[in-house]
């Protein structure tokens, strides 16, 4: 067995080239989910794919196993709590759970959706962390065996 982990040099090079654009794409999909197809869920999945891509290209089974999934775990919970918190803010501002209290703004602009972009961001964080967490858990489990 050679010492090189992961896939070939070409894959690694391309990964680092496309990484930035994948990230931008994911964030764009999330932020403009209320204007174009997409949304928090799709954006979160794309961001998770970015990390999975790194992980597959560089073959980080061992690194992943060492990586405490602290950050992911916190993000996972934080996204969910964020969504809940936005919903609870609706009680404060409008008297109803999940009330869209930031309505207004020009149509077809980023801020037109009130709480919708905020909820999208919360979901994006939650989903991205969740999906990557699954891979981490599977990797840790394989390593332990």
């Amino acid at each position: 067995m050679n010492n090189e982990k992961g896939m070939s040099e070409i894959v690694k090079a391309i990964t680092s080239l496309v990484a930035a654009s994948i990230m931008v794409f994911g964030i764009n999909i999330t932020f403009y989910g209320h204007l174009t197809p997409g949304g928090g869920f799709a954006g979160g999945l794309i961001l998770a794919f970015l990390f999975i891509l790194y992980y597959l290209a560089y073959g980080g089974d061992e690194e992943l196993a060492k990586l405490p999934f602290k950050v992911n775990h916190i993000l996972d919970s934080a996204g969910a709590i964020g969504f809940l918190f936005i919903g609870t803010l609706g009680i404060h501002f409008g008297g109803r759970f999940l009330y869209n209290f930031m309505k207004g703004g020009k149509a077809f602009h980023l801020l037109s959706g009130g709480i919708i972009p905020l909820e999208n961001i919360a979901i994006c964080i939650k989903v991205g962390a969740s999906i990557f967490l699954v891979f981490t858990v599977l990797a840790v489990f394989r390593r332990e065996k």
Binding site: S77, A80, I81, L84, F97
Partner: peptide, 12 residues
Amino acid sequence: TIPLAGAFVVSL
């Protein structure tokens, strides 16, 4: 919301 918040927080 109470059990959901409880679940999200207690996992931390």
